[in-house]
Design a protein around this nucleic acid. Structure first.
Ligand SMILES: [Mn+2]
Ligand SMILES: [Mn+2]
Ligand SMILES: [Mn+2]
Ligand SMILES: [Mn+2]
Lengths: 229, 229
DNA sequence: AATTAAATTTAGACAAATCTAAAAAATAAA
DNA sequence: TTTATTTTTTAGATTTGTCTAAATTTAATT
């Protein structure tokens, strides 16, 4: 086995993996990541984050100069993507094979994502028949860390009377997932926007070609759909 | 939820869980467990074991007086059995659903057994259709920690020309499992003892009603079978 | 530009799990 | 029953990941 390959197989602590994943996600939305962002995301203290940043830098997983911000190195990004791959495959397994609800799986996957066996995750992928997205519509990276972003638009930008199919959820807090579950909106649900009130930008939706439900602008901004143009 | 129930749901560190499991297994074979036994089993140092014994005692998982030996408390035994349940269910999953060989699954299960969700393991049990034994023939405790010992006898005590069915393996080291795999002996394999040599107690076996293979006394002592009397 | 506020880092501490080396207790041998 | 050997425990360190409080740097306001 080559040196580079062995390096990519290296096992990091669960804590380090959680940091790498958090930084990866924060890079997505902001571009620049701050110490406080990470502390907030991981429910920890800024001082603890600084400590860890130094360790990640020492292992060349992070590009970091004190006070000057930071970002993942190539290697750090690669590791993060493998954790995300594991997280999402396990979520898919829990929902599709073990009948969990989409709002129950995140916490459990947060533990399962740290199981180290490469062979396990590749066999699981095969067993699940190579799913492309997890139960929340997020793309699952392949074993090389490649994944495709799905072109999607939030409900506020779905043209009125066009039917869209739910393809992703932005805010995936338990509260949000509970609300969507209650309104019977899930991945693949067909939705039409019937009206957007000028007053508070709340929306009336036709869900599953049946019931009319109302959602706030805040909710609408976090429900993504794909539709035929 | 009752106090007792919450206690049984308590999460312990992976390290503590490994100690409890090791002590449980050592109690089985010996009755009395020693500090050195545990150190040897867990590939650690006697001093580390003593440290941990004190912590387990403080948590009432262990009955222990310095220099006087130790054994699991009721609660410790209960925790150990839940870890063993998880270990064996995951092993079964890996072999039956992900096509792993029986000699590949132990290490991975050693990690998976520490995933904490109770609901996960009960759903997994259901998904697997409540298997009673793991891929090595060891019984899987139910969610209350109950399990039944299978009546079995080692190959040396299988009456000559009686056909037995392999139901368990004693020594489950990778070396042993590799040997058995090579001789095409696995769980459920039908075996007849054709001859036991007085010189070294080695055995000639008829395997699968076909090939004649020779195994040492050491091997025979670690292959268990059940048969109709 | 000087001051205030916010973000970040350092200093020092702590808990968990481990180790080595040395002391104490229990066992085995002489 | 002394003496020697083995087992077990203690004492004192080390590593990893975390914390609080204080210092430093950067950013925002007057
Ligand atoms: Mn995690
Ligand atoms: Mn997800
Ligand atoms: Mn384990
Ligand atoms: Mn097993």
């Amino acid at each position: 086995m080559s040196e580079a390959k062995r390096e990519s197989m290296q096992k990091y602590s669960s804590s380090k993996e959680n940091y790498l994943k958090a930084i990866f996600h924060l890079q997505k939305s902001d571009g620049v990541v701050t110490t406080n962002d990470v502390a907030n995301e991981l429910q920890t203290r800024p001082a603890s984050v600084t400590d860890m940043l130094k360790k990640l830098k020492a292992q060349k997983l992070l590009i970091y100069e004190r006070y000057k911000g930071f970002k993942l190195s190539q290697e750090g990004r690669k590791v993060a993507l493998q954790i995300i791959r594991k997280h999402r495959l396990w979520e898919y397994f829990l929902v599709e094979k073990l009948q969990f609800g989409w709002d129950e799986v995140h916490e459990i996957a947060e533990e399962l994502e740290h199981i180290s066996s490469r062979k396990l995750i590749d066999r699981l992928d095969e067993f699940l028949d190579y799913p492309k997205t997890d139960p929340h519509g997020d793309p699952i990276p392949d074993s090389q860390g490649r994944f495709t972003l799905i072109k999607q638009v939030d409900l506020l930008h779905l043209p009125p009377n066009k039917t869209g199919e739910v393809s992703g959820i932005g805010d995936q807090s338990p509260e949000m997932l509970e609300l969507l579950k209650h309104k019977q909106i899930g991945l693949g649900t067909r939705i039409e926007v019937k009206k957007i009130f000028a007053f508070d930008h709340s929306l009336e939706l036709k869900v599953r070609n049946q019931s009319i439900v109302t959602v706030s602008e805040h909710v609408a901004k976090n429900v993504f759909v794909k539709y035929d143009e």
